[in-house]
Amino acid sequence: MQLGKRLRQLRNAQGLTLRELADRVSVGFTYLCKIETNKLEHGHSPSNRLLESLAQELDASAEELILLADRVPPSLADKVHAHPEAFIALAQLDDQQLNRVLQLAGAAEFDDAKSLGGVCR
């Protein structure tokens, strides 16, 4: 799923207009519209701070929005830096193996993976 599509879903679920949400996070509504329609110019992606503000206003996961913006959330980056061997091993698993690992880790209800890029189906 793309960031813009997810933001629109979240905004509509909260019953907010683009202008209302833009006012709440202190950005121009045209900028927010460009994010939602994936029409931002190259190099003008939203900052982590804005994504965190949007997540807070939309009662959503900041980590999800940051991942959908093709970034690594700081909390995950810290874990990757602390345990690179674990993440290298995870990256080599196929979807079925990864699902088993998630189940063992207590993340059996990982349906949100689809919204995080469809890693685990």
Rank of each mutant, 00 (worst) to 15 (best):
A69F: 08
A62V: 08
R121N: 07
K79W: 12
L32A: 09
L3M: 08
D70A: 12
R71Y: 03
A105H: 03
K34H: 08
L18K: 14
L65T: 02
E36F: 00
Q103M: 11
Q96K: 15
G43C: 08
F87K: 06
G106V: 06
A91M: 04
Q96T: 15
R100W: 06
L18E: 10
A113V: 12
A89K: 10
P74V: 02
A55S: 07
Q56C: 05
S26H: 10
V25Y: 04
L16F: 13
P84K: 07
L76I: 12
C33R: 09
R6W: 01
D112W: 07
L18T: 07
L40D: 01
L67M: 10
V80D: 04
A60G: 09
C120G: 00
D78C: 05
V80L: 13
Q14H: 15
H81W: 02
E109G: 13
S75E: 14
R49A: 01
D23I: 07
L21S: 10
N38M: 08
I35W: 00
L10V: 00
V72H: 04
A69V: 02
A89C: 11
I35Y: 00
G28R: 02
D95S: 13
Q56A: 13
L40W: 05
L58Q: 03
V72R: 10
R24H: 12
V72F: 01
E36M: 05
R121E: 05
L68S: 03
G28N: 13
R19A: 15
L54A: 05
D59C: 02
A82C: 06
G15N: 09
R6D: 09
N12Q: 15
N12V: 06
L50P: 02
Q9K: 05
V72I: 15
L18Q: 14
Q14Y: 01
L65D: 03
R24A: 10
L54K: 07
A55T: 01
P46G: 02
L102D: 06
Q103S: 04
T17L: 12
L65V: 04
G118M: 06
F87D: 11
E85H: 09
T17M: 10
E41T: 00
K34F: 06
G43I: 04
L102T: 10
Q14K: 15
A62T: 13
A13H: 15
A86P: 01
K114N: 07
G106A: 07
L76H: 09
D95A: 15
Q97H: 14
H44W: 03
A60W: 01
A113I: 04
F29I: 01
N99I: 09
A107P: 00
L93A: 14
N48Q: 13
G15A: 04
A113L: 11
G117H: 08
Q2H: 13
A82L: 08
L51M: 03
V80M: 14
C33V: 06
A22I: 09
